[in-house]
Every structure is written in C-alpha cells, then in structure tokens.
C-alpha cells in the first residue's frame, strides 16, 4: 500500500482583522498552495474569515506533555500581575513625610 494522502498541514484561522490567528485543525494536501485551497472550504465555509495560514505539521516543534511541570510556578510570582500590588485609592503626603491613605 502506497500512501497517497499527501502531507498534513495545520490550519490557522483569523476571524477579523486585529484578531489573532487561531488553530482550527488540519488538512491533508500534496503542497502548501493546495493546503490553503482545501483549508478554505474545510475550515472557513461557515465562520467569518479574513485570513488563513497553513503550516506543515512537520515544521512544528512542541513541548512534551510529560514536561508540563515546566509551566508550574514554584514560588509566588504575583509580582508579575496587577493584582499582586496594593495601592491606596487616595494619597495625601504630610509635612513630616508620613502619608495618610485609604487602603484600596
């Protein structure tokens, strides 16, 4: 049995200008141009679309699920987030350098 199904291309779909391209699925195709042609009807025949990408599946390098823990945060990383900070609603500086405030 010879395999005649072509290569696998991953398809990314942009719904409107300004949106990110989102991964929607794959197509089998013999070359990139045909992959685009095929992706248009398989993945954009209903939903609005302004732009499509196709990428050979073989070009994608991915992390291993077994290494999922590399994404864990072992220590408190709340300093990266806006909610990691407490700031007063109002601040009034006093003469001796002390400030009075209402906690947020």
């Amino acid at each position: 049995m010879t395999d005649t199904q072509g290569d696998v291309y991953e398809v990314f779909h942009q719904q409107s200008r300004g949106d990110p391209h989102i991964y929607v699925g794959s197509v089998h195709a013999p070359d990139p141009e045909m992959a685009l042609l095929m992706a248009k009807e398989q993945y954009a025949r209903r939903q609005a679309c302004v732009n499509l990408w196709v990428v050979p599946a073989s070009a994608i390098l991915a992390t291993e699920y077994a290494d999922e823990d590399i994404f864990d945060r072992a220590t408190d990383k709340s300093y990266r987030e806006s909610w990691g900070y407490k700031t007063p609603k109002t601040v009034r500086a006093t003469e001796d350098g002390e400030s009075t405030n209402d906690e947020d």
Binding site: H28, L37, M38, E41, Q42, R45
Partner: peptide, 11 residues
C-alpha cells in the same frame, strides 16, 4: 479523489 477536495468541490 481526496476528502478535502470533495468538500471544496461541493462548495
């Protein structure tokens, strides 16, 4: 001849 083309041609 190809599943993907079946879809495209039907459109």
């Amino acid at each position: 001849p190809i599943l993907e083309e079946d879809i495209a041609f039907s459109s």
